[in-house]
Amino acid sequence: MRRLLICLMALAAALSATLPAFGHEMSMAEMQLRETRHGEFLWQWGAGEKRPIAQDLTPVWPQACAAEATMLRCGEAGLAGTLSVRGVGERYSAAVVRVFWLDGQTRVYTLTKAQPSVQLYGAADDPRGMGEIASAYTLLGVEHILGGIDHLLFVVGLLFLVGFNRQLVLTITAFTAAHSLTLASSALGWLTLRAAPVEATIALSIVLVAGEALHQRNTAARRWPALVAFLFGLVHGLGFAGALQEIGLPENHLLVALLTFNVGVEIGQLMTVGACWCLWRLASRWPAARRMRTALLYMIGSIAAYWSWLRITAVLA
């Protein structure tokens, strides 16, 4: 067992060196179109992290539009028709298209692998249906939580702390209620905090939960795990809101987009809990597998401690 623990600690150290400090960032690409006069737009991709976005994504303009370098000409009909992006869902999980219209209005469209195209109507009016927006933002919520390693490690830590019993339902519900509250408050502009302290607190929450799950002492976290989940869930919700701010919210059906993004997050969270329950049922058949519990918690705690150090350094820098 000791040798296994040492090996897993070494593996955690290796993973910490390769995992990003900000474990839940989405790979977002952003395009801006700015109308200079009726039917003519300046367009460009934002800066890619390692290489130009144009190497991975290719816009397919409406049929009446013609692109020349950074100029898009659509004629009298304006920017009307189907806009799609080839390659979305591969290197980039989503492409955000921001259109700045001549009258000063702005519209944001989010394209994903499941919904790689959007219908434009030549003006700032955005008559997209509620179902179209709900589908896109639900998928984005699922992608975000499943790609958010730090959020998932916190949920797994709660499972180790509480176990699969009735108390787990209350604990997960408290976490859900808390991050839903701060996600909505931040997305609607009612609450704003700097990203760096939020990220550092998220990492520290994983360290705390992993540490509490390692021992059997009757601490406050063991007596009231739902309270711990609620308090840290408030911070995790701010992390979700940061991703949602990068994506943008449509001005029409804003509440639908916000709600369905949160629903997507919950779907991904329940998928994680379900997968862990299946693994737990399988492991319960082999007594030797129970020895892995301590090693896994040390692994989770080590990765989170590394993130904490990096993120606290970013706060102080």
Rank of each mutant, 00 (worst) to 15 (best):
H24I: 00
Q32Y: 12
H38W: 09
E143S: 06
L208M: 08
E132P: 01
I149N: 13
L83R: 05
A17H: 13
V265P: 01
F41D: 00
L238V: 09
R107P: 00
N165D: 12
Q105S: 14
A64I: 13
G157W: 07
C278Y: 14
L11N: 11
A184V: 15
A66H: 11
A317S: 13
E143Y: 11
T58N: 09
A21V: 03
H215C: 02
Y137E: 06
F154M: 07
G248K: 10
W224Y: 14
A114K: 08
M26C: 03
H179T: 10
V142K: 00
G39V: 03
A203V: 08
W280P: 14
L193S: 00
Q119I: 14
R2E: 00
A200S: 09
L181E: 05
T58I: 09
L57H: 04
G189L: 14
W45P: 01
L79V: 07
L249K: 08
Q269M: 12
G39H: 11
C276L: 15
Q216I: 11
V198T: 05
A221R: 00
V315Y: 03
A114R: 08
A67W: 12
V155S: 05
N262Y: 10
G237Y: 04
L153S: 01
T272F: 15
G78F: 01
R290A: 03
A241R: 12
G48H: 02
H151F: 06
R2H: 06
W307E: 01
P287F: 01
A29Y: 04
L255F: 10
Q63H: 12
S308I: 06
L33Y: 05
T294A: 11
A243D: 06
R86P: 07
A10W: 15
L316W: 14
D56T: 04
L139S: 12
L255T: 12
G233R: 05
W309G: 04
R98T: 13
L139D: 10
G163F: 09
H151I: 07
V97E: 02
A213C: 11
W61M: 05
R86F: 03
S117I: 06
M9I: 11
W43Q: 02
L259R: 03
R73Q: 09
K113C: 02
L11C: 12
S308T: 15
P197H: 08
T313D: 13
L139T: 09
G239L: 05
L270S: 02
L208A: 07
G122K: 14
A289G: 08
E35P: 01
A14P: 10
L140T: 06
M9L: 15
Y121D: 10
S93M: 05
D126M: 03
L214W: 11
Q63V: 08
A14E: 03
Y92N: 10
M292Q: 07
G122L: 09
P59T: 13
L227C: 10
L161T: 08
T112D: 01
A314R: 03
A80R: 15
G87L: 03
M26L: 14
A136C: 15
S205H: 03
N252K: 12
G242I: 07
E246H: 13
L83P: 04
V60M: 06
G104T: 11
L214A: 09
P20S: 07
Q55F: 09
E251N: 14
T294V: 06
